[in-house]
């Protein structure tokens, strides 16, 4: 779990993964953890990976091309591929 959390952090998805061991006798702990985590996720907002919300490659805002490259070349830089 520690491993996955670190990996998620590296790709910018931190805070969305949590593991807690809760016994069936620990009802209050269960409530506390679920409330806490729900609140945390709500603050993070909808998942950036939800269907349709991921920004398609074509819509990415590209930085202006450097002057030297803008005039010539194969044109592949303009399409951002």
């Amino acid at each position: 779990m520690g491993f996955l959390q670190e990996l998620f952090k590296f790709v910018g998805l931190e805070g969305r993964l949590r593991l807690e061991w809760i016994s069936s006798a620990e009802a209050t702990k269960f409530v506390k953890v679920v409330t806490e985590f729900t609140e945390q996720i709500r603050n993070l907002g909808p998942s950036p990976l939800a269907k349709g919300s991921a920004q398609p490659l074509e819509d990415l805002e590209l930085p202006p091309l450097p002057q030297a490259a803008a005039g010539g070349g194969c044109g592949c830089a303009q399409t951002g591929t």
Binding site: L60, L62, P63, L65, P66, A69, A77, G80
Partner: peptide
């Protein structure tokens, strides 16, 4: 690498 890759 090209400027786009370096930036985005």
């Amino acid at each position: 690498y090209g400027s786009v890759k370096l930036e985005v």
